Simulated scan of single mutants.
Amino acid sequence: MKTIGLIGGMSWESSALYYQIINRGIQEKLGGVHSAKSLLYSVDFNEIAILQKEEKWGELGELMIETAQKLEKSGADFIVLCTNTMHKLSDEIEKNVSIPLLHIVDTAAEEIVKHNIKKIGLLGTSFTMEQGFFKDRLLNKHYIQTIIPNEKQRSDIHQIIYNELVKGIISNDSRNIFLEIISDLIDKGAEGIILGCTEIELLVTNEYTEAKLFKTAEIHAKKAIEFSLE
Rank of each mutant, 00 (worst) to 15 (best):
M10Y: 10
V204T: 03
Y19K: 02
K29T: 04
L139F: 15
F45H: 05
E47Q: 14
S74M: 13
H158M: 09
T209Q: 12
G61A: 08
K73W: 01
K135Q: 11
V97D: 05
G25M: 00
E207I: 07
L101P: 05
E28V: 01
N206T: 07
F127Y: 15
V105D: 00
L101F: 04
T128C: 00
K95Y: 07
T146I: 13
V43L: 15
T125S: 06
A221V: 06
Q20G: 02
G58Q: 13
I4K: 05
A224D: 03
I65T: 10
L101A: 11
L6Y: 12
F78L: 04
F78W: 04
E130M: 13
E28A: 10
G75W: 06
Y18M: 05
L101H: 10
T128Y: 00
K212Y: 09
N116A: 08
R137C: 10
Q131W: 08
L202P: 00
K53F: 10
E111Y: 06
I193W: 05
S14F: 03
H115I: 00
E230A: 12
L202W: 02
G25H: 03
Q27N: 15
H103T: 11
S14A: 11
L195Y: 03
I99K: 09
E13P: 06
Q159V: 11
T128N: 01
L213T: 01
E199W: 00
I117Q: 06
A190F: 08
I79H: 06
V33R: 11
D77M: 03
A190S: 14
K119T: 15
H115D: 14
Q69G: 09
K73Q: 14
S171C: 05
T209R: 10
N150Y: 08
K53P: 05
T216N: 03
A49P: 08
K212E: 14
E92I: 12
K135I: 07
S98Q: 12
C82A: 15
T205E: 07
L195V: 01
V204Y: 04
F214S: 02
L30I: 04
I104Q: 02
E59Q: 14
I181P: 06
Q20E: 13
S183W: 06
N163D: 15
E218Y: 12
L51K: 15
I120M: 02
D156C: 07
Q153N: 13
I186R: 12
L89M: 13
I48L: 13
L89C: 06
T85K: 10
I144T: 07
E207L: 15
K53E: 15
I112R: 01
A109S: 11
G8Y: 09
